[in-house]
Design a protein around this nucleic acid. Sequence first.
DNA 1: AATGTCGTTCGGCAGAAGGGAACAGCCACT
DNA 2: AGTGGCTGTTCCCTTCTGCCGAACGACATT
Lengths: 254, 254
Amino acid sequence: MTASTPGRVQSVETTFEVLEYIRDNEGAGVTDVANALSVSKSTAHGHLSTLTSLGYVVKTDGTYRVGLQFLELGHHARARYNLYEAAKSEADQLAQTTGERCQVMVVEDFRGVYIYQTAGEKAVQTDSHIGSTVDLHCTAVGKSYLASLPAADLEAYLEDVSLSARTEHTITDREAFLEELEKIRDQGYALNLEERITGMRAVGAPILTEGGDVLGAISVSVPTTRIEDTVHESDLPEQVQRSARVITIKTTYS
Amino acid sequence: MTASTPGRVQSVETTFEVLEYIRDNEGAGVTDVANALSVSKSTAHGHLSTLTSLGYVVKTDGTYRVGLQFLELGHHARARYNLYEAAKSEADQLAQTTGERCQVMVVEDFRGVYIYQTAGEKAVQTDSHIGSTVDLHCTAVGKSYLASLPAADLEAYLEDVSLSARTEHTITDREAFLEELEKIRDQGYALNLEERITGMRAVGAPILTEGGDVLGAISVSVPTTRIEDTVHESDLPEQVQRSARVITIKTTYS
DNA sequence: AATGTCGTTCGGCAGAAGGGAACAGCCACT
DNA sequence: AGTGGCTGTTCCCTTCTGCCGAACGACATT
C-alpha cells in the first residue's frame, strides 16, 4: 500500500500484510517476510515476535505460522450471522446425497464469503474454502442473494461494483444481468454456468428469514462433465431450495 | 499489558485489544472502545478505521464488529493440522448417535484449542465453541492428548504450566495426575469427572498418526445427570475410541 | 430549539517504529 | 572437525508516526 490515508495506523497495516504473507506461504521466516514486504529484518522480526507473544502467530521449527487464535475471531464473526449452526447439517446432507461440493455464503461489504463448505464423495478440489471471498455476480450463491435483495440495495451494489468477466460466460452486461436476476426470482434458484470457473457449474438458492429478508445463500457445485447425470439423478434445484427452506425454519426457531 | 517488552510493536498490541474488545462485546462504538481501553477517541478511531479499511472489521449501523475476513486466517490455521476435514464427519456422527456435544481439539502453545464442535439433540449449552481454548489438565481431550505425549514433551508441559484447580474435582497434584495419565494410557480413553465444569463429564480419546504421534483428541461431553443413561445406552468410551481410530485412518489416506 | 452524545478531523509533540549493522546460533558442506 | 554462509536476534539512532487533546459536525433526544 503506497497511499496511506491519514488517521490510519500504519503498523497495523504492516502487521496484517505480514499475517497474510505467512498465511499464503504456509509459514515463513523473518528474512523471508522482510524481503517479501520490503522492510528491514528488524521490522519483520518485531511484528512477528509481537504477534507470537499475543498468540496469533506460532513459531514451530523456526518458521512462523498463523495461529489458531484467529479461529476465535473468525468463528465469532461467523456466529453473528446465526446461519452457521443451522446451515451446517443441511449442507452436509446436501453434499452427501449429491456427492458434490456444497457451500454456504453470506455477504459482507458486497463480497460473498463462504462461512461453510463441505465436500461430497465425488467433489473436485476448487480454490474456494471456508473464509474465502467470491464475486457475487458470477456465482450461484451470489446471484441468489442479489435476486432476493430489495431494489434499493441492489442498486447500491450495482453502483459499487463492476460486473467484471471471470470467464467467457460471465454476465457482464447490466441489462442482461438484471434479466438474469428476474429469472432467478421467478424460478426460485440460480444457476452458475461456468461464469466464475470454466468447467464448473452450480445451483444455488437464497436463504431467507420468515419475513423475506435475505440472509445468505446455499449452493452445490458440479463439474460440467457430470452436471447432466447429477441433475437427472436428483432434482438438484429442488433439493437446494428445500435445504434453503429448512435452514430458514431452523434459524427461526433457535 | 503494562510492561511492553522492547522490540515489540505496540500499536499491534493495541489493535488486537480493540479486536478482542469488539468481539467480546458483540460490537462497539468508538467512544465505547476508547473508554474500555483507556485510550483517546482518536486512537480508537484510528485503529477501527484502519481495521475497517483492511476489511477485518465491519461497520454496520454505526457499530464496529469483527469481520468475516478472520475466517480465512482462522480456517487456514486449522487446515494446517490436517485434522478438520477428517474429524468433522466423525464428530457429527458421534454427536448424532449420542445426542450430546462432541468436540475435536488440537494443542497450540500447551493450550487445547477446539477446532470443531458440534451439538447433538440433547446437548447442553456450554462456554466452549470453535476456537476457544481450554486447559489440558482438566479436560478429557487434554488428558487424552497428554497421555499420548512422549515423556520429554510431557515433562516440558508440566514444567510450563500449573495444574490449577477449576472445580473441586480438578486433579492438582502432580503425582496423582501422572497416575491418571498412566491409567488413561492403559484403558485408551480419558474421563473428565467434573474437573473443569461442575455438572459436566466427558469421555475423550487421542487421535494418533499411524506412527503413534498424537495429533489431537476427540471427546463427547455429557451432563452428569444423564451420564449413566448415555453410558448404558451406548458404550461411550468404545464409540469415542472408534471415532478416533477412524480419523487416524482418514488422515493417513488423504 | 437546545442539549447531550457520538463519530470524525485537525495540529503538535513525544515516543516509538523502522532501518542498519553487528552479534549469535545453526546447519551444511567440504 | 573446521569453516562458511545462512538464519534469527539484538542493539542504537534517527525520524517518522501514532497518540493525545480539542474542536468540529452530525444526530437523536427532550
